[in-house]
Write a protein that binds this DNA or RNA. Structure first.
Length: 489
RNA sequence: GGCCCCAUCGUCUAGCGGUCAGGACGUAGCCCUCUCAAGGCUAAGACCGGGGUUCGAGUCCCCGUGGGGUCACCA
């Protein structure tokens, strides 16, 4: 188990919201780096100026950090191999391209967009693979004219490399297009930039998504043309929608920001992502980042594409929420609920233990606890009535309960519960019937945190007011018939 | 469609030639219980198909089939 230090990297594009796929790849890269030592680089692939979004880079960094992903080198932390934005490395790419042209491995091409489109349309019509026809391969295109630079892919032969997870992969060169390396705007394409940077930055292991397998021959050809040693290639499985297609925001939330804002804990998302394609080899599913790193190895990664199951993520998030200490819990809930943020911290300390095990996401707090924060609740008439109990009977019992609450020396949980149970017995109601009627009266809902505890948190005055209001909903009977069920005859 | 990758319960997975094919999410039932949860117990639920190799294949090989990815001056 010789553990050579590695140099790994992720190269997200600042073209939109930070993607869970980026986090997934980053997680495995970081795990390998931490396990074996070395460097983990964050490189910003901002070579597509048309899709570039100015605030995206900061968002990516922010969300990755939120998830617990840390890099050794990057645009924000510096490092010896910088700059770490590809837009700041264009001289390197231009020089590289000149080298390739000089070596005959690349050529200038001034074909217009229109010509290319026409050509492809024609090829499609003839049921051929749409690909560059080599028009400029042997032409002399002036460096001064508007042009791109293409890779001169051998017309015959094949390119083979070893994927660390999948073994040898061979692709016929004839199926590889003459890839554009340098765009007419002077920026490199991914293929050129990634090869140049990975080499210059000393990258030893390229852990990236499976969707890159088919363009790997281009990269291998470039390494060969430059005379550079090949890094190890590790193509990770692709995260999937529930229909097995590549995960996409149309079918699944893919923005890390979304998960943060919708009440997920970074540890839970991180743990969940680790489970995609990796396992300890036993039944362990809940584990810390440190445990993951310790157990991690490339050999433990599965190659089948895992479906991103929201339900399991929510369950796991609930597991993590339940493990939180009260102070942490308060902090998180305040971030996700305006009501909680505005509430007295002392009040929150009493409410949260009642709902901690009832939330799978922090955003569920409001739905669960709204009745603590409003002036009055609106108990639906029908919900107030236990099965087969009349309006009059129920109102009468609630009146009794009201008196009981009013006259209790102190409103503590044990006494309140005992007295209410006594009352139920006295009026010949099941305790559960009384509790439900009171629950609806006091909270307006049939599903709530535990009643007795909730009442004690609400306080005597509020409980009395709400019971009164509930009695009003039922109408005020003149002659309450106590202790009977008047529909039972 | 060409090329490439992949293939155990619905989903995430364990399994690395001999197992009653194990666990988790979800689903159903029961227990607990003031509702809902949480927790406990139980149940249903998978080796894609066909050939080989082998005393013996979920495990190895081949061929199908299925799914996915990719075929841009996007990454």
């Amino acid at each position: 188990m010789a553990q050579e230090p590695v140099v790994v990297r992720i190269a997200p594009s600042p073209t939109g919201d930070p993607h869970v796929g980026t986090a997934y790849t980053a997680l495995f890269n970081m795990a390998l780096r931490r396990k074996q030592g070395g460097r983990f680089i964050l490189r910003i692939d901002d070579t597509d100026r048309t899709r570039y979004q100015a605030d995206s880079e900061a968002a990516i960094q922010h969300e990755l950090r939120w998830l617990g992903i840390e890099w050794d080198e990057g645009p924000d932390v510096g490092g010896d191999a910088g700059p770490y934005r590809q837009s700041e490395r264009t001289d390197l790419y231009r020089a590289a391209v000149e080298e390739l042209i000089a070596k005959g491995a690349a050529y200038r091409c001034d074909c217009t967009k229109e010509r290319l489109e026409e050509m492809r349309a024609e090829q499609r019509k003839r049921k051929q693979q749409p690909r560059y026809d080599g028009h400029c391969r042997e032409r002399e295109v002036s460096p001064d004219a508007t042009h791109v630079v293409r890779l001169k892919v051998p017309l015959a032969g094949e390119t083979t490399w070893t994927d660390e997870l999948r073994g040898a992969i061979t692709i016929q060169n004839a199926t590889v297009d003459d890839q554009v390396l340098l765009k007419s705007d002077g920026y490199p394409t991914y293929h050129l930039a990634t090869v140049v940077d990975d080499h210059k930055m000393g990258v030893t292991h390229i852990l990236r998504a499976e969707e890159w397998i088919n363009s790997t021959p281009k990269h291998v050809l470039l390494y060969e043309a430059f005379g550079w040693p090949l890094p190890k290639f590790v193509h990770l499985p692709l995260l999937r929608n529930s229909d097995k297609s590549k995960i996409s925001k149309r079918k699944n939330p893919t923005s890390i920001t979304w998960y943060r804002e919708n009440g997920f804990l970074p540890e839970a998302l991180r743990n969940f992502l680790s489970l995609m394609g990796f396992s300890f080899g036993d039944d362990r599913e809940e584990f810390t980042l440190e445990e993951f790193v310790e157990a991690f190895s490339l050999g433990a990664i599965k190659t089948g594409g895992p479906v991103f199951d929201q339900q399991k993520l929510e369950w796991l998030n609930g597991v993590y929420i339940r493990k939180l200490g009260l102070d942490e819990l308060i902090e998180h809930v305040r971030e996700h609920s305006a009501a909680a943020a505005a509430a007295d911290p002392a009040l929150l300390r009493r409410i949260l233990p009642l709902v901690q095990e009832r939330m799978n996401r922090f955003t569920e707090f409001d739905e669960l606890c709204d009745f603590f924060f409003v002036d009055r609740v609106q108990p639906p008439h029908d919900d107030l009535l236990p099965k087969k109990r009349s309006d009059t009977n129920t109102a009468a019992v609630l009146r009794q309960a009201r008196l009981l609450v009013r006259d209790l020396p102190s409103l503590d949980e044990e006494t309140l519960e005992q007295k209410l149970r006594d009352l139920a017995e006295e009026v010949e109601w099941k305790a559960r019937e009384l509790f439900m009627a009171l629950r609806v009266a006091v909270t307006g809902k049939k599903v709530t945190p535990p009643l007795i505890e909730s009442m004690c948190v609400l306080g005597r005055e509020t409980c009395i007011e709400r019971i009164d209001a509930a009695i009003d909903v039922l109408g005020s009977p003149e002659n309450p018939i106590l202790g009977t069920s008047d529909t039972s005859a």
